[in-house]
Amino acid sequence: MHGKGLRALTLATLVALSATFALVVFWAPNDADQGFIQKIFYLHVPVAIITLIAYVVAGIFAWRQLKTGSREWDLRSYVVIHIALIFNIVGLLTGAIWAKASWGHWWVWDEPTLVSFLIVFLLYATYQPLRFSIEDPERQARYASVFAIIAGAFVPLNFMAVRMATSLVHPRTFGTANGGLPGEMMFVFLVSIVAMGLLFWLIVKYEIAQKTLTWQIRALRRRLLGDDAVAPLGRSAAPTIAPQEAPAR
């Protein structure tokens, strides 16, 4: 079920990523102020935007989980946060590289996006330890959802606060005084956002398909070989029972 459309999505992602790469390297004009370095922007900012959207979406999924009590939503929320954390790390690393290239330091405190990203990362990095410390899967799902909702609301608020506290001295490519992005840059930027979004969605789908398959095989083993032949599940941060086994409310 969950594997449906995976091939089409994989192809689309591949095309979009190649297109982004080609456009960035061969077509997008060099920035007047920053030159070639500015091209990291096409990678860093879309990854950042997708990460943020993903965190908020995970919060919405978590809300659905609490409303419906369905473990299916817990799985989605978990996987989205899991992958968003990885994107978050990519965003932090590319941001650090950009900072080093533009301003000579690996870390700059007056770049609000980067700083917010670190704070958001620190918060979401506690999601897995929190899940891991709760044994009962039902409670784990509920508590994780509460966390995801609170954290989802935290993301925009945190951005506001960090933005307010930062003096904007560095050149910002997006929406600065020198009048936004030129058309060509904007086009490449949008293509890149689409590509990163597709990549994110693809990985989420892979992950969900893999987890569901694992559960189904586990259930099959239990049915075929008996409950004793299957090692009991240890503590796990990931959701551990198949959604179809989940209680109906």
Binding site: F21, G35, F36, I37, K39, I40, L43, H44, V47, V90, L93, T94, I97, W98, K100, A101
Partner: peptide, 12 residues
């Protein structure tokens, strides 16, 4: 500059 941009993409 080229090296830095390459590094960023290599990270991804």
């Amino acid at each position: 500059a080229g090296r830095y941009v390459a590094a960023a993409f290599i990270v991804l």
